[in-house]
Design a binder for these strands. Structure first.
Length: 325
DNA sequence: ATGGTTTTTACTGCGTC
DNA sequence: GACGCGGTAAAAACCAT
């Protein structure tokens, strides 16, 4: 036992050394002095670090000529997008192993060979279907990325969205549903989970799928994957609305506290969180003497003025009830 | 499908600039 | 007179059953 393992490990080491030598001779050795080659991308040259011999020059830099500092910028500057419709799902690149048990000359195979081929077929099929899932994933992730940046959602949301999508894919939730639909639903769920929710309407504007389907798919995915998603917290909308309206930090703080007391009073159950947030923002602006009209708030929050009125009365009542003012 | 709740639409009156 | 605001009634949308 110990004998064999020692012999194994020495052989292993030998093989490794061989491999390293191969790599050295193939890629990194200078033809002149045998020294290391270093590629200098700035000058588009490959030079030997020992003797200075230039092995290649005027190399082509295949990277983009622009620089991007965040995802949004990258999106704007990039002139190529995700590959769209590739008609054939695998672009005709995957392999099939024939079903006849014949060799290249048409001779029948031995039973031993036949067994081997059968095993190969099985594995080839497994890899191929895995590939198709990979492709599916790639398209969905591209879609998620596109929508996320259109909505200005941070990277961690994209990541959770992809995780959710992967799970959906693994649990075979896709058949009978569109990739876009599930991708959108995943993003919606991820945004809510991460505490940076976007309303269904906002999601709908950037998705290729209509609202009903998103809602349906979302419910389905949440149920099947047992995702725990609490109803959106109104507070999480506040910063966004406040900044879009150009309100002070003070107003934002007031809005938060307004919502906290409202929560304490239990006013918020059953009401749309967006409406509540919008009302709080409006009320806060009023309290800090910053001029914002109900109309403006209703615009940024996508909520009707009436709802704002109703909610903000309730908010102020709750505040008064506590003897705050 | 149904009924109850919430939100929206549409309209009206009041005060201010 | 336009605009912001408040209120109301009816319609529409939403949700659980």
């Amino acid at each position: 036992m110990t004998d064999t393992s020692i012999r194994d490990s020495t052989r292993e080491r030998e093989r490794e050394r061989e491999r390293e030598e191969e790599e050295q001779s193939e890629e990194l050795a200078c033809p002149e002095c045998g020294g290391n080659l270093v590629s200098d991308e700035e000058r588009a040259e490959t030079v030997c670090s020992d003797c200075g011999l230039v092995v290649e020059e005027d190399e082509i830099d295949r990277g983009p000529e622009w620089r991007a500092f965040d995802a949004k910028e990258k999106d704007e500057k990039s002139r190529v997008g995700a590959p769209t419709t590739k008609m054939m799902h695998d672009e005709g690149l995957s392999t099939n192993i024939g079903w006849q048990d014949k060799d290249a000359y048409g001779q029948a195979l031995s039973s031993r060979q036949r067994q081997k081929m059968q095993r190969l077929r099985t594995w080839n099929e497994r890899f191929r279907t895995r590939d198709s899932k990979e492709r599916n994933l790639k398209q969905a992730l591209g879609e998620i990325d596109r929508m996320a940046s259109a909505l200005g959602l941070p990277n961690n949301v994209r990541e959770t969205a992809s995780v959710i999508y992967r799970r959906a894919l693994d649990e075979d939730l896709l058949p009978g549903r569109s990739i876009e639909g599930v991708a959108t639903a995943s993003l919606y769920a991820a945004a809510r989970q991460a505490g940076t929710p976007r309303s269904l309407d906002e999601i709908t504007t950037v998705s290729r799928v209509d609202k009903d389907e998103i809602a349906r798919t979302y419910r389905y995915v949440v149920r099947e994957l047992n995702l725990e998603i609490k109803p959106a917290d109104p507070v999480s909308y506040v910063p966004r609305f406040a900044s879009e309206l150009g309100l002070s930090d003070e107003a934002e703080r007031r809005a938060r506290s307004l919502l906290e007391t409202a929560k304490g009073e239990g006013i918020h159950s059953g009401k749309s969180p967006v409406g509540l947030a919008a009302a709080a923002v409006y009320a806060a602006a009023l309290l800090t003497n910053e001029k914002v009209t109900q109309n403006e708030v209703s615009q940024v929050a996508n909520i009707s003025e009436v709802t704002i009125r109703n909610r903000y009365h309730e908010l102020l009542e709750a505040e008064d009830g506590l003897g705050a003012v």
